[in-house]
Design a protein around this nucleic acid. Sequence first.
DNA 1: ATTTTCCCCTGCCGGC
DNA 2: TGCCGGCAGGGGAAAA
Length: 299
Amino acid sequence: MPELPEVETIRAQLAPRLTGAVVVGIEIADPLIVAGDDPAAFAATVCGRTVTEIVRRGKYLLIVLDSGDALALHLRMTGRLHWRPGPAGPGEERFLRATITFGNGSTVTFGDARRFGRMWIIPGGTPMEPYWRGRVGFEPLARDFTAKRLARLLAGRTASIKATLLNQAIVAGLGNMYVDESLFAAGLHPRRAAGSLSPAEVRRLHRAIRDRLRVAIDAGGASIDTYRDGLGRPGRMQTLLRVHLHEGQPCPRCGTIIVKDVVAQRGTYWCPHCQPDPSGTVPPERSRRPRRIRHEVAA
DNA sequence: ATTTTCCCCTGCCGGC
DNA sequence: TGCCGGCAGGGGAAAA
């Protein structure tokens, strides 16, 4: 799943290839992928504009245009962006949702098996701080994300540290995989209450988050499932994961068998020895919610 | 205000 | 071999 390092990898690859390029066409193969109810207006807004820069915010990518508008997109679970020097051949993108064509003949395809990904327009002049507020919090790799800042963000919270770090409004860009990896690197049990961390533990977590994200960016992201980078290639971070998806395998630090359980509604992996379960832990979730039966009434 | 639950989607996998 | 239930999970709305 694309998280901050994966989106950043794509951004860094697209930026030099698209900056200065003119959008000459956009083909929406699946209208669901365009947020809102007017894919044609979306396409019209983008066509003819020149790309001025590409910005990442959390897991969002913004292709900024010379009109001031930005083409915003989110890959969610299975979305992919693939730049090619020419058109994508038939069948090259298995779950093609949209194709953007540029003046130099290069293309970017938006593929998405699960159809959770979205594109939309952020109008020029939109004040971005209010736009993100309440939805996308601190950039974990930015200068203003200090250990002290993280401590303030966690203080008083009763939810698990796993749920808290998954909350994009608090820290932006962490997903299930990098939360697991960061908590392991910090030696923190995922069910610890976020507000129960000592100052030393917060400092360890702060360092762990930044370290794991930087390593993952250097590795070009993790291709554990469908992720490919902006050039269609897999990343290398999947070989550097220490606990995520490692259920039943020995901990790389102590050899204890890695366990998996559900925390914050997510499959969560940790080392029971390196990430001890002291008091201050939120109770384990009860059994899975029963599947709701939906009754359809004939129209 | 914070925290939890539900829903959206569909490819894939394990079980029978 | 083929069918089928269940799982995966980011984010946003709704509920608690």
